[in-house]
């Protein structure tokens, strides 16, 4: 354990640590707390210059107003329409590709793998013009399906890296044993490897959900109108309309941030397992 456990330190040091923890947390989350408080501040407070003090009342009506006066509910629905199919598609495809790359020693194996890995790192901008063009030509511009297809393809790169390493970590004898028993390759995938991939599938689902939910760039490139716009791009558009209406912007921000935050808290273990993939092995 490093640093030395605080339990071994002297009394005052321990106390200081216990006090420092919440203070550090408040400082660290200051922007967030500020926005959260503002989202509950009545408009009159802002008009009166009460930006920092205790709100004169707790204004849940800000949230009501956001949903009533703006299409944010619709945007959120769009985000779900993009995110959930992407999670299913990308995780599903990468189970297959990860299995192929982990289990078979075909000639191009490492090269295909590195292509997937390298694809993860490239700047989106190098894809922007052709992908937009492709989406337009396919008649999918300005639709959630257009976004889904791109996200599935792109996230498959990251997910493949993850799945492949995960399957490599399984004992290979499981697969060989099944082969000797006369089990076909597809059955091996379906009945042996897939059930054992559950933790990886959970981790990736949460991660991909967060990544795709939070995507802003592609939401602006592949979507123009309200009817397919995800909440990130929608929030940006609303920000333009609500000039200086910070209580509404704040409430909208909180609403937009909520689904991934909930996801994170519900599936924290899986989330962190996904993010720190490989961070501990040499």
């Amino acid at each position: 354990m490093f640093p030395t456990p605080i339990q071994k330190a002297s009394g005052p040091t321990r106390l200081a640590y216990q006090i420092a923890l919440p203070i550090a947390l408040v400082i660290w989350l200051f922007p967030l707390i500020g926005v959260a408080v503002t989202s509950l501040r009545p408009a009159s407070d802002l008009a009166a210059g009460n930006y920092f003090g205790v709100p004169s009342s707790i204004a849940f009506e800000n949230y009501a107003a956001v949903f009533r006066d703006s299409p944010i509910g619709w945007y959120i629905l769009n985000s779900f329409k993009v995110t959930i199919p992407t999670v299913i598609g990308a995780v599903g495809l990468s189970c297959l590709t990860g299995f192929a790359l982990a289990v078979y020693g075909f000639r191009a194996n490492l090269w295909v793998f590195f292509a997937f890995v390298a694809g993860n790192f490239i700047p989106f901008q190098i894809l922007m013009v052709p992908v937009r063009d492709l989406t337009l030509k396919a008649g999918l511009y300005d639709s959630t399906l257009g976004l889904v297809l791109f996200h599935v393809a792109f996230q498959t790169g990251f997910c493949t890296l993850f799945m492949r390493n995960f399957i490599k970590g399984m004992p290979f004898a499981l697969i060989e044993s099944a082969r000797v028993e006369g089990v076909s390759e597809w059955q091996i995938f379906r009945h042996i490897v897939l059930p054992l991939m559950r933790p990886a599938i959970a981790a990736l689902s949460v991660l991909v959900f967060t990544f795709v939910w939070n995507d802003y760039f592609w939401a602006t490139v592949l979507v123009q109108g309200q009817h397919a716009m995800p909440v990130t791009a929608g929030l940006y558009a609303l920000n333009g309309q609500w000039v200086a209406a910070w209580h509404l912007v704040s409430a909208g921000s909180i609403v937009a941030a909520l689904p991934p935050v909930l996801m994170f808290f519900l599936m924290q273990r899986h989330f962190i397992a996904g993010l720190t993939l490989g961070a501990t092995k040499g």
Partner: peptide
Amino acid sequence: PYVFLAPGALMFLIYVLIP
């Protein structure tokens, strides 16, 4: 291996590598 690889690789090819 190629059957397992095909769907994901194809998507990746169309949307990432070729662009």
